[in-house]
Amino acid sequence: MAQATDIAGLAATCHSCHGIDGASVGPSMPSIGGQNENYLKQVMLEQKHDKRYSSIMGRLLRTYSDEEIALMAQYFAAKPWVPAAVESEMRMVNRGRQLAQKTCQRCHGATGERIVEGTPRLAGQWPGYLAIESTKYTDPTFNRNKPSERMAERVCNLAAEDIQAVVHFLGTRK
């Protein structure tokens, strides 16, 4: 494995899926550049140790040490956050804002901007990715463990259209 000093080389292996410096342009792929360091580290460790479902991440991370994961989290957290390029639709935004006030605000802030301890930045994250994460709590076919109990409590009652509105609202924030 690469040494700690070559963290940029290690991190570059993430670019093809997450964008250069972690600024994703793909709607289903989360931006990781500028994301909360604690959150990035925690999620990668959970994925590596099979506590959080992921398609490829957990499988790849098995070959990385926990120290390397911590360094990659630090590396990408220090990169600029580039908000998703999504055009906002007024009606979706308004509906999403209302739902987010009730459902998300307490932990994530009014626009998903709040970063404390383990919470991720949601403002400007790709809506497609936010929907993929959110539907872990609502899709009845998702039979793996839910990543967060608090999320499960709040998201489980949202209809598919509600989730679309909320992630559109959050994704179009800067």
Partner: peptide, 28 residues
């Protein structure tokens, strides 16, 4: 490789990740 016998959620989201992968590597 992905697991066999996986849920619809897994298959659907892997298809979404495939498109996201293309967008990002092509941008790179």
């Amino acid at each position: 490789v992905s697991p066999t016998g996986a849920s619809q959620y897994v298959r659907r989201t892997e298809a979404e990740f495939a498109y996201g992968w293309l967008r990002n590597i092509a941008a790179e």
